[in-house]
Design a protein around this nucleic acid. Structure first.
Lengths: 159, 159
DNA sequence: CGGCATTAGCTGCCAAGGCAGACAATATCA
DNA sequence: TGATATTGTCTGCCTTGGCAGCTAATGCCG
């Protein structure tokens, strides 16, 4: 396939590559938000699980792994922690007894409600110099990049 | 300061947030490129060190840590691996004997030369549906997001 | 010069993530 | 139905990254 040559081997510099920039952006955002969770005794991954359950993105561990590209073994342990602390419950599914349904408890629901404004505020801070149009363009381009990177991954398998 | 409210607590959904998208993009890109390094017995961080030295972004461990937001203890071990395999050399600086200058060996330089085309090709694949204008806009917005996220982090400290 | 703070790098320890293997439940299909 | 494959979860093991503390070298005063 004839493909646009956005980068060329002869002129490639790490610091200008989209890969580098995405990595730096991700690190900077995590560093910005983690302290806020830490104040409440949480980390980012625990938050992800809670918000996924609240948003109904996932009902069980498998869905979270698929959506967030996370390892199922590691997730088991994150869920253990949240269950120990009483924020979520495991319930064996009746339909498929291999599967474990995850549910927010009342205290989990309250926790999410109290943390959402913190997260939203941090995001808005990070985007405070952006116009609305820029945010929506960034969102669009990131989605496109995700799609393209996934096809890159599968192309790699084939090779 | 009056700040644009790009997100609101009452309508916030994880999946549409820039934080989520950046994370997904980063994971997808890493998953796409790691196998290429693995074929040669490397991982991403080792590559970062090599390309930083080649590009002259860093001369010693401290610079790499600062530029890439990486932990100095962890970096020591990455450098150990690369030195053992003969791709880089440590040389005590004459000017400041606390500092250790890092240098690519000939074999390290060859390695980088052989891997750059692989990296460039994967990046172009990920961006194959992008126009040139889109790539440059994405680059601009990511740089802006990085700047904004860093200010978010320091605002967090103050609070 | 002598004392104190700072800097660069390294080590030990711990937590988190990836991977492979195990197990129970389910699906598939002859 | 019975045999085999697949699925969802969990466990053990290993690697990696973060953190705190250490040492050697330097800088900065007085």
């Amino acid at each position: 396939m004839a493909r646009a040559k956005h980068y060329q081997a002869s002129t490639y510099k790490a610091r200008t590559s989209v890969g580098y920039l995405v990595k730096r952006a991700q690190t900077a955002m995590v560093n910005g938000i983690e302290p806020a969770f830490a104040e409440h005794g949480f980390n980012l991954m625990q938050w992800i699980v809670l918000i996924y359950l609240r948003d109904g993105i996932a009902l069980n561990a498998k869905d979270i792994c698929a959506e967030f590209q996370y390892n199922s073994g590691a997730l088991t342990r994150v869920i253990d922690q949240l269950e120990e602390r009483g924020y979520i419950e495991r319930r064996r599914s009746r339909n498929d007894r291999r599967s474990v349904e995850l549910h927010l408890t009342d205290s989990g629901r309250e926790l999410v409600k109290s943390l959402v404004p913190v997260v939203v505020d941090r995001l808005n801070q990070a985007l405070s110099d952006f116009t609305r149009a820029e945010v929506s363009e960034l969102t669009r381009l990131l989605n496109k990049l995700i799609a393209g990177s996934q096809s890159m991954a599968s192309a790699g398998e084939a090779a």
